[in-house]
Design a binder for these strands. Sequence first.
DNA 1: CCACGTTCCACGCTTACGTCA
DNA 2: GTTGACGTAAGCGTGGAACGT
Length: 270
Amino acid sequence: MGLDDSCNTGLVLGLGLSPTHNSYNYAIKKSSATVDHHVNPSLTLSLSGESYKVEKTVSGAGDQIYRQTSSHSGISSFSSGRIKREREVCGDGEEEAEETEKRVVCSSVRDDHEDEEGFSARKKLRLTKQQSVLLEENFKMHSTLNPKQKQALARQLSLRPRQVEVWFQNRRARTKLKQTDVDCEFLKKCCETLTDENRRLQKELQDLKALKMSQPFYMHMPPATLMVCPSCERLGGGVAGGGRGSTVAVDGGTAKGAFSIPFINPSAAC
DNA sequence: CCACGTTCCACGCTTACGTCA
DNA sequence: GTTGACGTAAGCGTGGAACGT
């Protein structure tokens, strides 16, 4: 709920392009057109006693190839076990061995980011109603989870912590998207209101100009001719400033937005 | 104290799958 | 049966904070 609440205070809408960096080690890219020619489809890595092997059997249609990347520091992060999931490129069956990408990873480097039951295809998981409800309830309580909460919730839902994490991530994104829509609607309304107000003020200005032109010369007195009404101690004279608050009460009392008129006849003005 | 490298986390963007009209 | 739109789980790249050296 925190997100929803906080979004009411600041309205920020914008478009931007995120910068791209070139300092990443793309061993192999997704599209076959961008395959780094220095890298063979099969490669092995050996770091601090642990070895990784990535094999690729190029598929006919998919051309889905493993991409080994590092968030920041290339090899070093890779060695920490942050290995991306593998994907199998098969039509719809999982047992098309020839079209399957395989990766053998030393089990000691797996963390909860990895698929516990081996490396299956990216199958669309549909959360059950019950799971969704529970996740939603937890999200209402706190839109982000600390590791302990994540673990507990994952255990409770019989999901992997990574799945819980992803669900919360996507949920936050949806919330934000919804909020952006709301903000957008709000800003549209603001725009309409301001346009109306502007139109109204323009008209008022025109009316005032017309009124000024039609008034006799003695009505066009400079502000220096301000006078104080002897009975109510209000300032008189000057130019009407938009018809609101242009009359000043000397004693700090309430000046009731009256259209100010020079005190030709003070008693009449009060 | 500062610089640097590493790790972790959250986010934005994107992809791919499942569902439905 | 096919197709396109849509919702959403998951992947990837990135920035930033925290921490150790």
